[in-house]
């Protein structure tokens, strides 16, 4: 209750402060540079100045906050990556050299590559197939809502759900994980799934696929609806069967959307952290870059230099994809 009241209070105060700022600064500007000045010439000049200043006045708070919370940390991370563990001594490229030969980093890179290939591919594939199939059945929209729902769950929440799916209890006690229950029902032996090296990576990836399929499906479903029905009918007359129509007529027409979906998921994957953190914390060979960064940054006393170095690497990997993604998105929306 108390929390609620304070949250509400913060919101109200925040909104009022914003209104006060915009209204007040605007009023002040008009005061300092009045349009109805003594001479007409001065009035026009004042008007021009006010005109030039006003956008900055209104943009100011947003730019300041962005700079403080996004630009500054990014730049400072780069700076920190050239310093030692407690940022007291400049060490040049030492951190990067260390990273190059570090086994943990190599494993993270390898796992990240697996994630990069598997998750976007599977999410896009399932999203596309589901979008195409659900368009034709009456309960398609119900199915779509169900598939979209994981999008509303946080990664941590999803991980906890899947923890129960993979749950393993020692011999003798009843298995409460659904996967082991199924395996037992089929006559197999229960396994501690997330501790099986290499394959456990995929068990973790499935969680992200489960979440991202909904996203891919919604975007691709909209794209599929944009395909002119006549092109499909023309292909039918031309003798193409369902599979041929799908791959030769429909998919090429939404190719750009598929690429955008793919890269968007790729970016999410590069930053994947929560799932690994909650499920295995990088044990049993499941380490990924983001979790590895967290490890170095905050665990065991913390090494800001090495942590920042890993952060910079992640940033370098994400930026090109991001640029490409934004470019193609704006190009699409302009309708080329």
């Amino acid at each position: 209750m108390e929390q609620l009241a304070s949250a509400l209070g913060t919101v109200i105060v925040g909104v009022l402060a914003c209104v006060a700022y915009f209204y007040g600064s605007n009023w002040l500007l008009d005061r300092v540079f009045p349009a109805n000045a003594a001479s007409a010439e001065k009035g026009i000049k004042n008007l021009q100045i006010a005109h030039a200043v006003r956008p900055w006045l209104f943009l100011g708070p947003a730019l300041l906050t962005l700079g403080l919370y996004l630009v500054y940390p990014a730049l400072d991370s780069v700076r920190l990556s050239f310093y030692n563990s407690d940022s007291t001594q400049f060490v040049g490229l030492d951190n990067y050299v260390w990273l190059w030969f570090d086994d943990g980093f190599r494993q993270s890179m390898f796992n990240n590559m697996l994630w990069l290939i598997f998750v976007p591919a599977m999410s896009t594939f399932f999203g596309l197939v589901i979008a195409a199939l659900t368009d034709r059945i009456w309960w398609g929209n119900i199915a779509k809502s169900l598939i979209f729902m994981p999008m509303a769950i946080s990664f941590i929440g999803a991980s906890i759900i899947w923890k129960f799916v993979y749950e393993y209890r020692g011999e003798g006690s009843a298995q409460i994980g659904i996967l082991n229950a199924i395996v037992e029902a089929l006559g197999g032996d229960p396994q501690a799934w997330i501790t099986i090296p290499f394959w456990n990576n995929f068990f973790l990836m499935i969680i992200l696929v489960w979440i991202q399929t909904g996203f891919a499906m919604v975007i691709l479903s909209a794209a599929l609806r944009g395909i002119p029905e006549e092109t499909i009918e023309a292909a039918t007359i031309d003798g193409a069967n369902g599979v041929q129509i799908f791959f030769l007529i429909m998919v090429p027409q939404i190719w750009k959307t598929i690429a955008v979906v793919w890269t968007t998921i790729t970016i999410t994957v590069l930053k994947v952290f929560d799932i690994v953190f909650a499920m295995t914390n990088g044990q049993w060979d499941t380490q990924v870059l983001a979790n590895y960064m967290y490890d170095w940054m905050f665990r065991g006393g913390g090494d800001f230099g090495r942590g920042a170095t890993i952060a910079v690497i992640i940033m370098l990997l994400v930026v090109p994809i991001m640029i490409w993604n934004i470019r193609s998105a704006t190009r699409d929306s302009k309708g080329h």
Binding site: P228, E230, T231, Q253, W255
Partner: peptide, 11 residues
């Protein structure tokens, strides 16, 4: 069949 909207395969 020839369609009103041409129905060419755009790609």
């Amino acid at each position: 069949m020839v369609f009103q909207t041409y129905a060419l395969y755009p790609h």
